[in-house]
Simulated scan of single mutants.
Amino acid sequence: MGILHFEFMRNALLVGLLVSIACGVIGTYVVVKRIVFISGGISHTAYGGIGLGYYLGFNPMVGATIFTVASALGMGLVQQRSRQREDTVIGVMWAVGMALGIIFVKLSPGYAADLMSYLFGSILTVPVRDIGYIFMLDLLIAGIVYRYFDEFKAVAFDEEFARVSGLKTDFLNLLLLFLVALTVVVMIRAVGIILVIALLTIPPAIAGEFSHGLKGMMMLAVLLGIIFTSAGLGLSYLFDLPSGATIILVAAVGYILALLCKR
């Protein structure tokens, strides 16, 4: 409990709580709808926005938000209207986003000292302004999910039936991808771009093994996210390990134990 005397640890635990809410709610839809690969593509295009932020001198988190939202909507439109293979288009956007980020960072004046924190996460160094930004994104995500909960549930479990029933499935899919993009931005500072997919999928995947309803699955996923981030933070502090990677490893161990218990 002594770690709570440090302000940066209190801030990190707060970020972990906010991250857990976003990944528990939206990660549930990602797991049920089986769009993990799309989520990975969205997360890696964020690097282009981070590089653009450094290059033009504004908050990299804002740049990441712009790029992830644009890529999410682009992937959704391609999925709906293009004849190209969906996985091919996602792979192209994934690569282009990373390439643009590398180029923008190279062209930026000076040295981007904390750039690696966006790749692998640095929850211990999240500034207060970013905590406020993450909190606002959480509120936006919660508000939209509350408004469209039943519609999202229909699209996630049986999209064809939802379309026949008269729901605007194309709009709902784009809106869901928009929320995935916001969730990715929320998690980048906690676990980094490379590890986002794990935290977005592991807690909901465990929750899905022990839940019989969507709301229960979300609540359990949020709780598991809080446990994993808090335990990962404690272990990284005690053993001087990278925080983002430690959180993911704790979550992976939890997933293995859950499968063994279920068996």
Rank of each mutant, 00 (worst) to 15 (best):
A156Y: 00
F157E: 10
F157Y: 13
F157R: 06
F157D: 09
E159I: 03
F161N: 13
F161D: 12
A162R: 00
A162H: 00
S165V: 07
L167Y: 12
L167N: 12
D170F: 00
F171E: 04
F171H: 07
F171G: 06
N173F: 02
N173P: 02
L175M: 13
L177Q: 00
F178G: 06
L179H: 04
V180G: 07
T183W: 02
V184R: 02
V185C: 10
V186F: 10
I193D: 08
I194A: 14
I194V: 15
I197D: 03
P203Q: 00
P204A: 11
A205W: 04
A205H: 08
E209G: 15
E209H: 06
F210Y: 14
S211M: 05
H212P: 03
G213P: 09
G213N: 15
G213F: 02
L214M: 15
L214P: 04
K215M: 10
M218N: 11
M219C: 12
L220V: 13
V222H: 00
L223K: 10
L224W: 01
G225H: 05
I226S: 07
I226C: 15
F228R: 06
F228M: 02
T229E: 09
S230H: 09
A231Q: 07
A231D: 01
G232Y: 04
G232F: 02
G232N: 05
G234H: 12
G234F: 14
G234N: 14
S236D: 09
L238M: 13
F239G: 13
F239H: 15
D240Y: 02
D240M: 04
P242D: 01
S243C: 08
G244S: 08
T246I: 06
I247H: 05
I247Q: 05
I248N: 04
V250C: 05
V250L: 03
A252L: 10
